[in-house]
């Protein structure tokens, strides 16, 4: 698990991140670093601030503190520009566009790579249109659907898919963005054991073959221990531990806060 090829990719540096909503301190002085090419798990009890942290990285919230992705400071980059920098994500609660087809859903992931402006999109055809670009994105989307074993569902409305398929579709949508860093918010939640196994293998593939850095929130400690290189433990908005999974589970505070031991 340790022979990662970390050639390309950018390092994510979170430092002293704080975020509060009204009186609730969701994050307090959280700092950690994610090396390129690794899988980083974030664990912690409910309400520990895990999703808030992901939301800060992906741009939904603007926290105090600094976040660097490579050389660039992220905090004030607008949400829709972060995907261009190579940061894509999935959501804890399934967030597919239920009325759009599976194909359209996944193509949204590649949206930021479309270069045509809106007037060219109105014209569509010809040298001034966007048809070529659309066609290429569609071809790539279909290829990806093939790999997700969802090619036959391309024209179905995404809302009609099963829960597991919707989760997979979300990962696909993020992958079509060609990310360098993929944020997964509880990708395995609500899945059966077999599905979890399949998805775990797949996450490893994404990480190794596509060389995509992964930060994921996960509750299942078995999954965390098999997949992740590093674990960050949050509790009440603070980082209480960090390190390789085998060490983290031995940490006293972690056992107390998370695994419910005294």
């Amino acid at each position: 698990m340790n022979e990662k090829k970390s050639s390309a990719g950018l390092k994510l540096c979170i430092s002293d991140l704080s975020m509060s909503f009204g009186g609730v301190q969701a994050l307090e002085g959280v700092s950690f670093e994610v090396e390129p090419g690794t899988i980083h798990a974030i664990i912690g009890p409910n309400g520990a601030g895990k999703t808030t942290l992901i939301n800060c990285i992906s741009g939904q919230f603007i926290p105090e503190g600094t976040m660097h992705f490579g050389e660039r400071e992220l905090t004030h980059v607008r949400a829709h520009n972060r995907i261009q920098m190579g940061i894509a994500r999935t959501f804890q609660h399934v967030n597919v566009y239920s009325e759009l087809s599976v194909l359209d859903n996944i193509m949204i992931g590649g949206h930021h790579r479309l270069k045509s402006n809106w007037i060219r999109q109105c014209l569509y055809w010809g040298p001034y249109g966007c048809s070529r670009e659309e066609q290429m994105l569609q071809a790539e989307a279909l290829e990806l659907l093939e790999r997700l074993e969802m090619r036959h569902l391309a024209d179905s409305p995404a809302g009609e898919l099963s829960y597991g398929q919707q989760k997979r579709l979300e990962v696909g949508r993020a992958l079509l963005a060609h990310p360098k860093l993929l944020l997964l918010d509880e990708p395995m939640a609500g899945m059966a054991k077999q599905e979890k196994k399949q998805l775990s293998d797949w996450i490893l593939d994404i990480n190794r073959e596509m060389n995509i850095t992964i930060v994921m929130i996960e509750h299942d400690m078995t999954v965390v221990q098999t997949l992740s290189d590093q674990v960050v433990v949050l509790d009440f908005g603070r980082k209480i531990a960090e390190g390789p999974p085998q060490e983290v589970v031995k940490d006293k505070r972690v056992r107390k806060a998370y695994l419910g031991e005294d």
Partner: peptide, 22 residues
Amino acid sequence: SGLGRSLEVIKERPIVSQMMGV
């Protein structure tokens, strides 16, 4: 085209769409 898709997605899930680059 992509424009049609972005119109549809901002209707259904504006915040998610922003994070998807719209």
